[in-house]
Design a protein around this nucleic acid. Structure first.
Lengths: 197, 197, 197, 197
DNA sequence: TGAGTTAGAATGGCACCACCCGTC
DNA sequence: GACGGGTGGTGCCATTCTAACTCA
């Protein structure tokens, strides 16, 4: 299975999503994460510690991709329309993370227009960095997107400090020693099972 | 005075910073904000409500720029090296917002390397989206950057929900009806006075 | 119908309850309120303004009671066991108001023990002065009393400033010019209908 | 020093006042609180947790009172004139708590008449359960009482939920884990210093 | 057996939302 | 009717203390 993670806006947890989806898939079969972000975020992440899957630069993708059952591709932010077309065509599922704030949702809707004009269908939106519960931003964004008829994951990813620690340590959040880290990992596990279904 | 806001990574408050620096400058002289972000974030912000300064598309920049005393330019995320050179040369001050997390700091250091190789000097880093106080991420990032000898503003911008409301309503945070909104506005005012000095 | 209002503790809305139950009954048939509180709270209330029913001192009770269909009796706080026995025997329903705080609930349980030892059955507890909604004191008290198997009204009386205005003006809360006064009146209306049933 | 707390009406914070004045005095010298309320409110309070001073039933007062420097007496609500005379004569200061609502103020004025007819002088009124600030009930009651020439404490006690928690937990409000509990404790500390002066 | 390390619980602090109330 | 001030509840985060486990 090939999963691509892409978004029109940065800072919405794109890299974090790619890393943890790969970690989920690795539990089943060998998984490759292709780092297509010009900042090489995943590569830096992996270099700080140890990730449980193989990470390669996009220019090495061809060489490795045949050896892995699952592939996750982390792309650069704000792909051009051509990029997007190529991305959507080259994967089984396009995961589009977004935060529940106005600026990110605007950029998301732009992207959705482009995707629709391309006729792409295999994509789903993931709401990330959801503030803790007294805030209703998360549910507000969810209902707005549902009303717009957009396909989105039934679960979202909470804003938890353990994700920062995970990036600092170079590990998935499941390896972070923090009582709340489990919650973050649970969120991505739920996304993974929803993909598997 | 011409201020450019640029960053290598998205989601670090670049647009928010541009909007509020422009709002600060407008208090003194007529100010123009040039929206150079392909997502047209500022334009969307302005369309939702009312911003106290003029906002134009980058392709209209030439026509308007002569009529305003102050100009703030919001650029696209992840400029190429050429872009960066052009940007740094075309302004009095380059403001580089960053969040205090590992991924953003990595991207920031990459950008700093590029800036140094260009010989640019008129730039300063602004730490944004700082989590509330039990977290020490803000001070940790500050001391790390200071240790690296990078020029940064002595004040940072806190993570406050009122900024989200401001974007939704299409106004600066100072217009948001929320007791905490004042804190966010105070932060940007302090940045403004530090620039003015 | 004869309704007596009594409580072991003061300041739980006993007088307010008597006044508004009388106001409710007066809507149907002529009603008499007998002021048995040594502080003569109801009499003072009536003197400040106008109440829609007849108010008499307890020493005049005999003369008037035969002329009214409904009678409400406001008793002194902390009746002795003998008092309580007399009260319970002389009415169709004993209404026992209590606030949802620890001290009042303690006093209430004391009173319940006394009532049980007397074999009284025609009584029901009314929770009053319930703080607004983020507080869960109201439901906490309700479930505690339900668990204890005590008979209580299915509705409670909220803490609303309009009740203070009503006492100052000498009128029922339904006559107070305040958008929230209606809520307080609704609460007592619901108690009235629950009694009528 | 012997302080008696008495009021004509219940639910005005009489027990809470007695408990916290005793807690204040205990900071200086060993203090005894005599529980004279038929509901035994203080005793119940003390039984739930721990109070920093000695609490005894009124029938044990004689045995203990000689061993304590300070004594606080919590009396029953609505004392008769004889009771009041005895109380006023048997203490150095009579503290009369009242809430700032019409019914309580009426009862208070009744009590004041009785006190005056007795020639008592060592008493002072304490306004309690003052609603938060947009409400001006507190200042209204204060100015009304001042205008009537009655002696009252220059500070009042705010209505704060932490007092309820304190009663539930059986501790003084200063032991309640709640950021606002400190405000309640400050209020009683101010009353204490005003007494000491 | 003792000391260092790790997991868990309790504590303190802050932010956010919902609601009430007085005023304009 | 809208606004501003204020309180209460809930939840997250960092720290500290305690308990248990490992290793010398």
């Amino acid at each position: 299975m090939i999963i691509t993670v892409a978004s029109f806006k940065g800072g919405v947890g794109k890299t974090t999503t790619a890393v943890h989806l790969a970690a989920y898939l690795q539990q089943q079969k060998d998984t490759l994460l292709i780092d297509g972000d010009p900042n090489r975020s995943v590569t830096v992440w992996a270099k700080r510690g140890t990730l449980p899957f193989k990470v390669v630069d996009e220019r090495q993708a061809a060489r490795y991709s045949r050896d892995y059952e699952h592939i996750v591709i982390d792309t650069q932010a704000r792909p051009s329309q051509d990029d997007l077309e190529a991305l959507a065509g080259g994967c089984d599922l396009l995961v589009v993370p977004t935060t529940p704030d106005a600026l990110a949702l605007d950029a998301l809707l732009l992207m959705m227009d482009t995707l629709k004009s391309l006729g792409a269908e295999q994509y789903r939106i993931l709401i990330t960095v959801i503030p803790p519960k007294p805030s209703r931003d998360g549910e507000a964004a969810r209902s707005a997107l549902e009303e717009a008829g957009l396909p989105l994951f039934s679960v979202g990813i909470r804003r938890i400090a353990a994700f920062q620690r995970a990036a600092e340590l170079g590990v998935p959040v499941s390896e972070v020693k923090d009582p709340r880290a489990k919650l973050g990992w649970d969120d991505y596990m739920a996304v993974g099972t929803e993909i598997a279904r």
